[in-house]
Computed example of a mutant assay.
Amino acid sequence: MINFNGELVENNTLFLNEENRGLRYGDSLFESLRVVNGKIYFWEDHYLRLMASMRILRMEIPMNFTMEYLEEQILNTIEASNVQNEALRIRLTVFRNNGGLYLPNSNNVSFIIEAKVLENAFYVHSNEHYEVELFKDHYVNTGLLSTLKSNNKLINVLGSIYAKENGYNNCLLLNNQKQVVEALNGNLFLVKGNTIKTPPLKDGCLNGITRKKLIASLEKLENYTLEEASISPFELQKADELFVTNAITGIQSITKYRKKEYANTVAKDLLGKLNAIARLS
């Protein structure tokens, strides 16, 4: 089932048309949520990010768009889909309503909620081969808009096609200053000794929820030093570990970049901590 503005409809129902502003202009935001047995992981953080992003895009936030209302809509969608006891990936999409050209007729919004079943109830570390390469055909712009989880994802689409055509599992994206900012599907962390480094938001990386949770956790751990600092491509082959984070997978270790192969000890340690944080969220 799909939830469109609070109305539950069958998956194959046609409820959008060619005037949709998300389709026409990418005038849309989304949140990818992990839900297990009716519990939405890090729901408050996702909600607050969505509200902040809507304000940045000058969308009108409806009076009923409370945390409680949207949580209820997500749970209603899950119940209607009869997947209450499953681990789920929820996509909550918000887009400006039809009308206008670049200038919208209004800033009012609609929303869609979709549910997909996941394989594992908890974040699980994969020991499988996972090779990445730099994607250098196009660059991420530094600045606030790049940090938003919007539908403007052409670089991620093209990077994914490049990765598939060349036998890579993922690609790392560069900004227009030739700094490494993130992977195609999540934030990047680099481990060297006891130091864990991740690009700052000013470099143009996504303001990821899992990134935020890991940073908060690392700041409390005495055995690691966290740095939010720009990452040069030259640093990648000097690292002990590289890993990618997102709300659905949790932590994905990178095993190879060019001729360098990486360990995964720190990633496994942090994944255990992330599962503990998720259960308490």
Score class of each variant (00 low, 15 high):
Val132Phe: 01
His46Ser: 12
Ala267Val: 06
Asn82Leu: 08
Lys260Gly: 01
Lys164Trp: 04
Leu206Lys: 02
Val157Gly: 04
Lys273Leu: 10
Gly272Ile: 07
Leu188Gln: 02
Gly143Gln: 14
Ser253Lys: 10
Ser146Lys: 10
Ile248Trp: 08
Phe65Leu: 13
Ala267Gly: 08
Ala121Lys: 12
Arg49Gly: 15
Glu79Leu: 06
Gly272Thr: 13
Thr245Pro: 01
Asn5Thr: 06
Ile74Gln: 06
Leu214Ser: 09
Leu14Phe: 12
Glu128Leu: 07
Lys164Gly: 12
Leu75Phe: 05
Lys136Asn: 14
Asn107Tyr: 14
Thr147Val: 05
Arg258Thr: 10
Val9Gln: 10
Val35Asn: 05
His138Lys: 10
Lys178Glu: 15
Glu219Trp: 03
Gly272Ser: 12
Lys268Asn: 12
Gly167Ala: 06
Thr245Tyr: 08
Ala267Gln: 01
Val180Ser: 00
Ala263Cys: 09
Ile277Asp: 02
Met51Leu: 15
Lys256Ala: 14
Thr198Glu: 03
Leu173Val: 03
Tyr168Glu: 04
Leu172Ile: 07
Leu190Pro: 00
Lys39Met: 05
Pro233Tyr: 00
Arg21Thr: 06
Leu118Asp: 06
Ile277Ala: 11
Lys39Trp: 05
Asn194Arg: 06
Glu44Leu: 15
Arg58Phe: 13
Leu75His: 13
Val180Ile: 10
Leu174Met: 07
Pro62Asp: 04
Leu101Asn: 10
Asn264Tyr: 03
Phe65Met: 14
Ala183Phe: 05
Thr225Met: 10
Leu270Met: 13
Tyr123Leu: 04
Leu48Arg: 05
Ser160Tyr: 11
Thr245Gln: 07
Val83Phe: 07
Pro199Ile: 01
Val35His: 04
Glu114Leu: 03
Leu158Lys: 07
Asn64Glu: 05
His129Val: 15
Arg279Val: 03
Glu68Val: 12
Val36Ser: 07
Asn170Cys: 06
Glu7Ser: 11
Lys273His: 08
Glu219Cys: 10
Asn17Cys: 14
Asn11Gly: 03
Ile196Asp: 02
Glu114Met: 04
Leu70Pro: 00
Lys192Leu: 00
Val94Asp: 08
Asn275Gly: 05
Ala216Ile: 02
Phe111Lys: 06
Met1Pro: 02
Ser217Leu: 14
Ile161Tyr: 07
Ala229Arg: 13
Glu72Ser: 13
Thr210Cys: 13
Asn194Val: 02
Met59Cys: 02
Leu174Tyr: 03
Phe122Glu: 14
Tyr47His: 08
Asn185Lys: 09
Glu235Ser: 05
Glu72Val: 01
Ser106Tyr: 09
Ser110Val: 06
Val36Asn: 11
Asn187Ile: 11
Pro199Phe: 00
Ile74Tyr: 10
Met54Lys: 04
Gly100Ser: 09
Leu75Thr: 12
Ser81Thr: 14
Lys212Phe: 12
Arg58Leu: 13
Tyr168Trp: 09
Gly193Phe: 00
Asn187Cys: 09
Ser253Arg: 01
Tyr130Asp: 04
Asn223Gly: 02
Ala229Gly: 05
Val132Lys: 06
His46Thr: 07
Asn3Leu: 11
Phe135Tyr: 15
Pro199Glu: 04
Thr66Ala: 03
Asn98Val: 14
Ser232Asn: 11
Ser126Arg: 15
Glu222Gln: 09
Thr142Tyr: 11
Leu14Ala: 10
Leu214Gln: 04
Leu50Tyr: 01
Arg34Tyr: 07
Lys260Arg: 12
Ser32Gln: 12
